[in-house]
Design a binder for these strands. Structure first.
Lengths: 216, 216
DNA sequence: TAGATTGTTAATCGATTAACAATC
DNA sequence: TAGATTGTTAATCGATTAACAATC
């Protein structure tokens, strides 16, 4: 009784999509009009077969004998990723990381609009960082509702992150971008994307240790 | 003619290792002595089979009928990850992100010691952020050699990142922690771990769009 | 010893690569 | 039309899960 069941896209593919998007953006900047999966393959260091398979999950964007139109493909992937419109966002935690994110103009370019910072420290409330105002935590729920906030970036310590995620679970937000060193437990209606920097640097460390100077 | 060929560990396993480590650290903090793959499985949301398979790639850390000793496993994974010793690190780019990393005490706890910041802006040179001094770019190569720097975190714009990675490729550094929105081309002897935040938020966006409220 | 739980082999599942007919 | 390159099916490879004998 399910609706025309959309093809299940694997995590591996979603992982690659933004990278395709980035490369296509660069090609556009260089004035390149078309690219074949073969050329794209060399550029990105993955097989042409994989590129064609990946793209074909979403539609036939190419043309036999020609390849892919760069601008068109860029836009199509933009749509697939959902960045063809504005997503309002707030940052919770006006510490170093929160301020760094606030100052990061690239997000806005992609349609992620940072509307406000939130912090429990009354010293910080009212201050602006990179033109973004810091608000007190006690108005966060009403702020989210009144400003169509879809994404909450959490740059607070782990216990605070768990608590805040819990508290915001019924506000209608769609995603949490979690920078805290913990996993969050939220309803299925909220997506969580983790940026666990301490895990990232440990992986680097592991790979450094095993590096023999000639991998891949 | 190869040396006793170490078993090739897949990327997927390396991805999970730091997460095991984090959970084990928390269990230790709670005073838990032992854990079975079954309990650990429930806690982490992955299968017990996978946990046992993963760990067995590195050795038989468990004991039949008992499970795993938490403290022992924590230490063993620490060794596997290479965080049982100090790794000297510098941050290139004393912008918001660089300063945020500099202020991040958790890394030091894991053995990653931030020795200095570097920036091309003479205004910033000499300043301290979170007790870490900012140095001029022109002494970076000698600094790396004189201070046993293994890891360079790059928090500079993409063109600068590409250039600096290139320039540092013969200094003996072992890893680059790359925050710039670009891929880097370095010799195989240098590991690169990318933290592409703009790709991360696009993935979040994709998942938000596809979320039906009942995944997994 | 009996019960529990690992280590490990075998089965399954999914993702990547290869191949090629379709077609621009 | 001939050449190029996609879309797509089939083959391969690798990772996850299931099952169970080994053993504490």
């Amino acid at each position: 009784m399910e609706q025309k069941e959309e093809k299940r896209i694997s995590k591996a593919i979603i992982q690659r999509l933004p990278r395709y998007y980035r490369y296509l953006g660069e090609l556009m900047g260089q004035g390149v009009d078309r690219i074949s999966s073969g050329e794209f393959s060399k550029m990105m260091g993955i097989t042409a077969s994989q590129i064609r398979q990946d793209l074909n999950n979403f539609g036939g964007f190419g043309q036999q004998g020609y390849g892919y139109n760069v601008k068109n493909l860029y836009e199509e992937i933009g749509k697939i990723l959902g960045i063809d419109r504005i997503h309002n966002m707030i940052i919770v935690g006006a510490g170093n990381f929160g301020k760094a994110l606030a100052g990061y103009s690239d997000f806005e370019k992609r349609g992620f609009k940072i509307k406000a910072l939130f912090d429990s420290d009354s010293e910080k409330v009212g201050r602006c960082y990179s033109g973004i105002e810091t608000m007190p935590m006690d108005i966060i729920k009403s702020y989210i509702r009144d400003n169509d906030i879809e994404i909450v970036a959490l740059t607070v310590p782990k216990h605070a992150a768990i608590e805040i995620a819990e508290e915001l679970s019924d506000t209608g937000i769609k995603g949490i971008w979690n920078f805290a060193h913990t996993d969050l437990n939220v309803p299925d209606s909220i997506e969580v994307e983790n940026v666990h920097l301490s895990e990232s640097i440990m992986r680097l460390c592991y790979n450094m240790l095993r590096n023999t100077g000639s991998r891949k």
